[in-house]
């Protein structure tokens, strides 16, 4: 199986460690991934903000770049949802490629059929199901099933987990007061779990919650992408 990594523009630019974790994890499971360097962005930011003219070239570039591969894996539920839900509606030629896109936990559980990926992460961890992973992509309990198999990891439940953290893409800039209020409530609930790490399937939301966590007073909680927990081992910890 020829597997391509769609790292996403945000991870590429700001969170390379997440992309590296996906490569390391899949390699450990016996799969080489390729990184087609023509990739850029799925177009979600422009699409969701109403800048439609900017979107189509990005959709086309995505479809052309990833067409040769049998599977495309991405460590972002939000981008996966944008591609699968919207690319075919924006450009019919993008249909086949879009159908091959899997968010990382989908790829592990549904395609590779694994939940125990041999990870080790000795921390108290809580999981925030991001809105697009929950309500657009329908990841269900896949991330939790993967986390429960991680050795050393103590999983604690996040109260009101399904409530939005307030990131919302450009919403965070266009409605900063409401966005920050939502983020503060989410961060407070994260702190109350006593977790020392918060994980999710999207670095965008983690960047927002993490930014509130480091700005506000309270015990330190690190934000870490799910992929980095799953890639972590005793010999090579994240």
């Amino acid at each position: 199986m020829r597997i391509a990594l769609f790292v996403t523009c945000l991870n590429d630019t700001m969170f390379p460690g997440t992309g590296q974790a996906v490569v390391r994890l899949l390699r450990r499971l016996g799969h080489e991934v390729e990184f087609p360097s023509a990739q850029t962005c799925c177009g979600q930011m422009h699409f969701n903000t109403g800048y439609r003219k900017q979107v189509l070239p990005l959709v086309r570039n995505f479809a052309e770049t990833f067409a040769p591969y049998e599977a495309v894996v991405t460590p972002s539920a939000s981008c996966a949802a944008m591609i699968r839900d919207w690319h075919p509606r924006l450009d019919d030629a993008a249909r086949d490629t879009a159908a091959k896109v899997h968010e990382l936990t989908e790829f592990l559980v549904d395609v590779l059929g694994v939940t125990d990926v041999g990870a080790y992460y000795p921390h108290r961890v809580t999981y925030h199901p991001t809105c697009h992973s929950l309500r657009m992509l329908g990841l269900g309990d896949r991330p939790l099933r993967l986390l429960r198999e991680v050795r050393g990891l103590e999983l604690v439940e996040l109260p009101d987990a399904a409530e939005c953290c307030g990131f919302g893409g450009t919403f965070a800039l266009k409605n900063p007061a409401v966005s920050a209020a939502m983020g503060a409530d989410k961060a407070a609930r994260v702190r109350r779990t006593g977790a020392d790490a918060l994980c999710a399937a999207d670095n965008s939301c983690l960047m927002h919650i993490g930014g509130v966590l480091t700005r506000t007073a309270g015990p330190a909680v690190r934000t870490v992408h799910l992929a980095e927990i799953l890639a972590s081992t005793e010999e090579d910890p994240s």
Partner: peptide, 27 residues
């Protein structure tokens, strides 16, 4: 500024994923 008025932003990493991939041949 609308972002940093109420939350920190992460500083950019020393190199992007694509720069890392190119430099290390994908690790």
């Amino acid at each position: 500024r609308a972002w940093t008025d109420s939350r920190d932003a992460p500083a950019p990493p020393p190199e992007s994923f694509r720069a890392w991939w190119k430099r290390t041949d994908g690790g």
